[in-house]
């Protein structure tokens, strides 16, 4: 028997496939990463079986020389299965560590069999175990890469969604619009806010827009610049802007930073801003005679 090949491993995989699969699942359970809360037994079984099948067929066809290279065409099956399973697992909230342990748990049943079968040739045993170990490590590493890619995609998607959600322009009254800003105002978002706002001005024939910054966490020079530029563009369109939601703390910060808002009207609350806006478009807010005031 050649020492450099994984013949014994291949033989074990061929002959003992079902037992190995069972023990792999068993090991996963012992390691505490079975997550019956996320996956039913049949799902776990299906995932493990598909992976092991792809692993075995990859082992059979892949070159055994040099470092294990999972980019090789012979591993295409494994990569596809891996992506599919990782996708399912990320969606349900499995952690990166659990994902790696899931793959590494495959070592236990394979090593046990190798030890039994190669009891009498320690050299071959060590060689096979070390090669197999590198193989599975590469496999686990790839799993984590796929896992991270999946996560990145989710983050990107959520970022896009947040972007859309975070710049809603609302019509408060005829010719009055408001845009409540929430979170951080970076250049990309500021651009988005400006575009949305200007288009809505045309659409609603708005004369006054209230830019509410109650929900903006930090107002630094850059954020102030964005606000001033938005106000300048609004003015160019022929509408007036009111910046509301300037807390005492933000007012102090803005003065300390030397931000000059020029002729832009500001109000501490959106309530005060609305009253002013109504006034500008020719309405008046008055208490009903019957309404009791305390």
């Amino acid at each position: 028997m050649s020492i450099t090949s994984l013949e014994e491993v291949l033989k074990i995989l061929r002959e003992d496939f079902d037992d190995i699969l069972q023990q792999w699942l068993e090991t996963q359970r012992e390691e505490g990463i079975r997550r019956p809360d996320l996956f039913s037994d049949s799902e776990s079984y299906r995932q493990a079986k598909n992976l092991l099948t792809a692993f075995a067929s990859g082992m059979t066809s892949a070159s055994q020389e040099g470092r294990p290279n999972l980019d090789d065409p012979s591993w295409a099956d494994l990569r596809a299965v891996l992506e599919e399973i990782t996708h399912e697992r990320v969606e349900r909230g499995v952690s990166a560590g659990e994902m790696a342990t899931f793959v590494l748990a495959l070592k236990t049943p394979l090593f046990m069999r190798l030890r039994n079968n190669l009891k009498d040739s320690p050299d071959a045993l060590v060689s096979e175990i070390s090669r197999l170990s590198r193989m599975i490590d590469a496999f686990a590493m790839r799993t984590n890469e796929v896992f991270i890619e999946e996560r990145e995609q989710i983050i990107q998607r959520q970022r896009d969604e947040m972007m859309e959600l975070s710049t809603p322009v609302v019509q408060l009254w005829e010719r009055i619009l408001t845009i409540p800003l929430i979170g951080t105002l970076d250049s990309v978002r500021a651009q988005e806010v400006m575009e949305n706002l200007l288009n809505s001005i045309v659409e609603h024939r708005a004369e006054v827009v209230i830019v509410d910054i109650t929900g903006v966490r930090v107002v630094d020079t850059q954020v102030a610049q964005h606000l001033l530029r938005t106000a300048a563009a609004v003015r160019l369109m022929g509408a007036e802007s009111i910046i509301s939601g300037i807390s005492p703390k933000i007012a102090q910060t803005m003065v300390e930073l030397g931000v000059d808002v020029g002729e832009i009207t500001t109000r501490p609350t959106i309530r005060a801003a609305l009253a002013l806006a109504m006034n500008r478009v020719g309405f008046e807010i008055r208490a009903n005679k019957e309404s009791a005031r305390d």
Partner: peptide
């Protein structure tokens, strides 16, 4: 003088 009817894209460019 009043300048009227500026398009959003033009306003953004000028700013």
């Amino acid at each position: 003088t009043y300048i009227v009817g500026m398009r959003p894209a033009v306003a953004m460019t000028l700013v």
